[in-house]
Design a protein around this nucleic acid. Structure first.
Lengths: 170, 170
DNA sequence: TTGGAAAGTCAACAAGGCTGACGTAAACTC
DNA sequence: GAGTTTACGTCAGCCTTGTTGACTTTCCAA
C-alpha cells in the first residue's frame, strides 16, 4: 500500500500486485505452507524409521504402478543411487515389489504390495486432511487460483510429468 | 466437468472439487511447484559452497533485521545447533553481523552486512523472477486464491509468524 | 560379434537435520 | 546475595538423503 510506487508501465497490465514486497510475502507463504504440507506425514514416518524420501517413492509408485526405476527417477528429481537406497529398504520391508522387465530385462517394474498400499493410504490420508480443510476454508475460487499458480510455477518438464499423471488417473 | 457427481449434501456447500483424486493432484502440484520454487536460488548457492539452509537464514535476517538467535530459531523451525552451524559460517564469511544486545546482553542481534545484502538481493531476485512470471501468467485472481490457500494451509504458529512479518514490512 | 549405451547396484562422502551434554554470562527471584 | 532460569555457543555423535565414481548386466546397432 502507500502507493507512490514507480509505475512499472511497460506491460500496460495491472501490475500493482507484483511489487517486490508482495512477491517476498508470497515466497514466505510458500515456505511456511510447505512446512505444514509435509508435517503430518512426517509425524507418521518417524515412528517407522522412514523419511520423506520413502514417502515420495511410495506416493509415485502408487500413482504409476509398474513404473521403472528410471521413470521414477525423473519424477523425483534425484539420482538413481539415492533412490536405490530408499527402494532397497522398501523392498526388504515388503512394501514394494520389483519385477524384472519382460521385454527388457534391464528394467525393474515397481509395484506396491498390499502392505505398501496400506501405508500409502495412511500417509496420504493424513496429508489430505490438511489439504481438504484448507481447501474448504479457502473456497472453490481460491483453490482454482492456487492450482493455476502452482502449475505455472513448475519447471516445464515437471509440468509435463504432472499433467501426464493427472490425465492417467482422471 | 462431467457433472453428475453424487451431491455430497451434508455441508450444503459445493464440495465437488474435494474428491480424493483432486486432493491427490493438489499434493503433487505442491511437490512439483516447490521444486521449481527452490531451483533458481539453489543454482546460485552451489557455486559458493552454501546451501538452502544459508539462504533461509539470510532471508529471515533480512526480513527481520536485529532479530535474536532465538527468534530466528522459531521462524526456521530448526534446532539451535543446526542454525548455529550455518550462522557461524555466514559470520566468518562476513555476510552476517552479530551484536550483543544492549538491554539484554545475553541476546545476539543479527544483521546482514553490505555483502550479505548483496547476496540476499541476488538470491531473492532469482526467486522472484519465477514468481513474478507465474503470477503474471496466472492473473490477479489466481494469485489471491493462491495466497489464501497457502495461508490456511500453515500451522497456526507459522501463520502467526507469517502475518507478523507481513505487517512489519508493509 | 563386439563395443557402446542404458538400467541398476555398491561404496564412499557431504550437507544438514537431530539429540544430549556442558559451559558461560546475564537476568531474574526469593 | 544465593540460587535458578534464560540465551547463546560448542562438542560429539547419529541419521537421512543428497552427491559422484566405479562396477555389472543387458540390450542393441554397426
Amino acid at each position: 500500500m502507500a502507493d507512490g510506487r514507480g509505475t512499472s508501465s511497460h506491460s500496460g497490465e495491472n501490475l500493482l500486485f507484483l511489487t517486490d514486497e508482495q512477491l517476498r510475502q508470497a515466497i514466505e507463504a510458500m515456505f511456511f505452507a510447505y512446512r505444514g504440507f509435509t508435517a503430518d506425514p512426517d509425524r507418521i514416518l518417524v515412528d517407522m524409521a522412514y523419511g520423506r524420501a520413502h514417502h515420495r517413492a511410495i506416493h509415485f509408485i502408487n500413482r504409476a504402478p509398474g513404473t521403472t526405476v528410471n521413470n521414477l527417477l525423473g519424477l523425483l528429481g534425484v539420482t538413481k543411487q539415492s533412490l536405490n537406497r530408499v527402494l532397497r529398504t522398501l523392498i526388504a520391508d515388503g512394501l514394494v515389489e520389483s519385477q524384472v522387465g519382460k521385454s527388457d530385462k534391464r528394467e525393474r517394474h515397481l509395484y506396491l504390495t498390499e502392505a505398501g498400499r496400506v501405508l500409502e493410504q495412511t500417509l496420504s490420508d493424513a496429508q489430505r486432511v490438511r489439504m481438504r480443510s484448507a481447501f474448504r476454508d479457502a473456497g472453490p475460487e481460491a483453490v482454482a487460483g492456487f492450482r493455476t499458480v502452482l502449475e505455472t510455477m513448475m519447471d516445464p518438464e515437471m509440468r509435463h510429468s504432472y499433467l501426464r499423471l493427472k490425465e492417467n488417473s482422471g
